[in-house]
Design a protein around this nucleic acid. Sequence first.
DNA 1: TGAGCTATGTTCTATAGCGCACACAAGACC
DNA 2: GGTCTTGTGTGCGCTATAGAACATAGCTCA
Lengths: 238, 238
Amino acid sequence: MAGAEVVAIQNRLLANSPRKDYLRLLPHLEMVDLTYSEVLHEPHTRIRHVYFPNDSLISLLTSVENHRVAEVGLVGAEGIVGVPVVLGHLESPFLAVVQGGGTAMRMKASDLVRESVKSVALQRECFRFTHLLMAQIAQTAACNRFHVVTQRMARWLLTTRDRVSATQFRITHEFLARMLGVRRVGVTEAAGTLQKRKLISYSRGTVTILDAKGLTAAACGCYKTVKDLYSQAQAPRR
Amino acid sequence: MAGAEVVAIQNRLLANSPRKDYLRLLPHLEMVDLTYSEVLHEPHTRIRHVYFPNDSLISLLTSVENHRVAEVGLVGAEGIVGVPVVLGHLESPFLAVVQGGGTAMRMKASDLVRESVKSVALQRECFRFTHLLMAQIAQTAACNRFHVVTQRMARWLLTTRDRVSATQFRITHEFLARMLGVRRVGVTEAAGTLQKRKLISYSRGTVTILDAKGLTAAACGCYKTVKDLYSQAQAPRR
DNA sequence: TGAGCTATGTTCTATAGCGCACACAAGACC
DNA sequence: GGTCTTGTGTGCGCTATAGAACATAGCTCA
């Protein structure tokens, strides 16, 4: 596996930290490959590592009693997986699952606790992201309450497109159903609706967004709400 | 209105801060009366004050396009209203509404930013609460997805009971419907169900919990999940 | 004491999504 | 080239909740 210094750091929390802080962090960072469906941390167990995704994508899921789960947040290169650590807490309430494979920089949770004290800038970036994540989770709560599957699925596809910067990616109905917290059949039906309208094409685990504008119109406003929050927060670089 | 020093501070974030930090904060604190349905901050506008509730109770609501809202979090004496400020952000994504009248200590947002840097202990308390709030919001997201109105209503009543430490409190069907993001009729029906089972009594804006154990059984597991998180986090004092 | 407002209760129709069961189709693997 | 696995599509009955409209009961205030 490539060392941290060989490949350009794509994670924006790290990229936005001052060079000297980043250099101090470097010895603690390790580049890892994350593969589809890999679990980064389980709910209510100690977080060993935090992850700064480069081109990977991680879903944060909340579970309820009977093994049902629903995605509440999605973390890509703009964030960090392990926000509780940032807040001084070593357990996550979430199940963190790799939803799109790729690389990430990882670091021991204990190292982050030590180092973030020394780097105000990194800490500020982490807090900024924590705020965004909280807003995203809250919007998802309302979205789950009010919007129908087709809208939520459109939102999900668009959000994922934004995070991975690609109009085509792999996701099965089954997996997507878990993310949205619905039956697999619910996804099949919603996908059928969107396909009939020529907004997407979907075949054996590969989705392609054909008409992003149309898909945005089919999605609920939650997509735009969260997207705007993210771009506001990221635009003014300090 | 009574000065801050006259009445005992009931807010636990403040109470748990070291005395010397608290004394430094005191000049910036002001005790205020909060009345039912008062708005503390609007979404996407600058947060002027943060609030440390004493015996008051504040709902955090997220709205979607067409003026519909749903409660995503509930803050009482264990917390602070204005978590984004804690994270260095001066806008809240939430609508903060007083759900149970009472008093709170309030402080200018800018003062909190300045002072929290000087008080590591206060900051730590605020972060601890931020983590709890995030977990609560995430649980609500999943709860909204999976649980029926009766369960969610039972959860809400129990949570409120815990926060206000009383088995009777005032809330109309209409108001509760907004919190749960359902029709008023939905609340009327769910209330009827719970009343038939002798778990609560409900009359013209006053609910009484008659059988807390039975009501817990009628509620979804989300109640216990969040309650346990809170008591874990609050039990080990540092 | 009666008018008016606020809070609650009832009913009807429509629909999204559930659970379940089964059919089919495209690759993968021997 | 056939069999097995994985991923999709379809159909059926059922329930929770939405939307809308209307009825009534208790409280307040003139």
